[in-house]
Design a protein around this nucleic acid. Sequence first.
DNA 1: TTCACATATGAAATCGTTCTCATATTTGCA
DNA 2: TGCAAATATGAGAACGATTTCATATGTGAA
Lengths: 328, 328
Amino acid sequence: MNINEIAELAGVSRAAVSRYLNNGYVSEEKKERIKKVIEETGYRPSSQAQMLRTKKTKMIGVVLPKINSSSISRMVAGISEVLSGSGYQMLLANTDNKIEEELNYLKVFKENYVDGILFIATILTGRHKKLLGECKVPVVILGQRLKGYSCVYQDDLQAAKELAEILLTGSGKPCFIGVTSKDEAVGKNRRAGYEEVLSERRIDCLPEQFAEADFSMESGYQKMEELLRKVPDTDAVFCVTDSIAQGAMACLVDHGKKVPEQVRLAGMGDRPTNRLIRPRLTTVHFHYRTTGAEAAKILLEQLSGKKTVCRELQMGYEIVEEESTGRL
Amino acid sequence: MNINEIAELAGVSRAAVSRYLNNGYVSEEKKERIKKVIEETGYRPSSQAQMLRTKKTKMIGVVLPKINSSSISRMVAGISEVLSGSGYQMLLANTDNKIEEELNYLKVFKENYVDGILFIATILTGRHKKLLGECKVPVVILGQRLKGYSCVYQDDLQAAKELAEILLTGSGKPCFIGVTSKDEAVGKNRRAGYEEVLSERRIDCLPEQFAEADFSMESGYQKMEELLRKVPDTDAVFCVTDSIAQGAMACLVDHGKKVPEQVRLAGMGDRPTNRLIRPRLTTVHFHYRTTGAEAAKILLEQLSGKKTVCRELQMGYEIVEEESTGRL
DNA sequence: TTCACATATGAAATCGTTCTCATATTTGCA
DNA sequence: TGCAAATATGAGAACGATTTCATATGTGAA
């Protein structure tokens, strides 16, 4: 079933059918005939042909580091929510945290494979920036701020600062478990927020009071163990993610440390699973689902062809103070 | 940059360039020239044109009920793992558990929008079956067994049975929190496994000892509360998912019931978050990631054009016995 | 030598749309 | 009435690849 057959059955020209489908000038009488034939045959225009002709794929490429992560899958849910019903489909590119994969997908997408790109980033290298600059389609970056690009990101610094103020109340020997500083948002900004509070309160720390984990619970457990060895009398631990905090918590429990009586603990990200652990973990709730939704909205706006002004959106957060920081 | 310009720059015909790209007959000398031009220009053939001409989109449609669910996002990770490097892209269709959306995506995909479909199902109605039957592209169903289709599913009945055998040891008044029986796998089969053990052990149950939740923790909490009201002396609770079990556990704790001393509890699905709750939850570990990976492999096999024999794959499982069932 | 078969080549058809263009016809307004 | 603008129509070119076809050359076996 192609447009020619429909045209023939309806006794009109191919162009008329095309116009009917695209709201062009067609007389009521012909509209009626075409409608009838399309319903009877169940005809659907070939999207492949449309793509070729219009240079639009009606697809959004979503590049992400790891789909089975709570924060990221929540963003994707938000994206999907907004995209559904907009006529756009979502093309998923799972990079498994491999930079080469990320670059590769950007290369594929940047020409005209998709109409727009949502890029959930952790680390943005120079090569990323170069490829992003070459993109012929609009891009929105999620989770990191990047000059010159539309982006939706968390206020990591401020959130970390506010959280640290709670955690460090009355603490003399705090420890910190972070991640690589190549990750601007989680690695750099959250640490910066923490350190601001350290210096405001004139708490001096030795390098051994800082550890660097990856994003996993296991790694949180392990780094906590190292810290306990090096700093046995630590009384507070700031973890840059909840996964890390959960690992650290398990480690503390296993080593017979009472939380929060002996060691206070805080994480960031408000994993849904936090509700399950006891003592309850103090954390920061970020609106990940909304982050995804807002990013998708911005992209759709840019696709709708208005002036392509680049928009930056900083999301709010909420401190979730619970038992693990000992004030409740 | 299109194939004509490349052909001209290389001094060959358009057909030669196409053959070069598709491993047809081209002399070494021309291969060299074409290669050089392509490298210099950074030419990439238009996938849209290829799709139109070849009727292949190199995309797999993945239909799923909810992306931010641990089991499903693990399946997607498995799918992505296998698909990556196969030359196929993943088109995500998040249906948000709405049957109409599912049917709609099937309608879009069934013709030739994608080369194959991975369908993560919960409920399979007659309309689903009709649309699946009309699919012109290969389909693999995940999580449910359906006659006549390739599928990868869990051995829900056997797993539930084995789990019930542990939970019901020495129990006189067990309760059950299930889900709708429209869900063949989780609703029907898991309940059937549970009931088999009931009858083997000649444990009689009243209807009020059975509750029906949806898949959420909240609903697990709420149903547990109802059960505690109707059956205050219950000594064991079988939950068909871990989310439900986690909700039930929270409820029991809130009502001052000791787990497992007063009430024993078991879930199914092995959510990663189980490791965090105390007492540790007895559950069944299903290989979701592998389920996704295997399904993708079957689909790729069918796409590779061999005999399209329909394959059924029943995945194994592992009982994870922990404290909540009181035997450890 | 001859015939079959693999290798090599480019012209032209093809996939199924949308869009431009040329051409009518109708409507609205001065 | 006259003239511009809006409405309506279909022929045919384009989009950018693959594939068929006709044709030519090289190679090895009978």
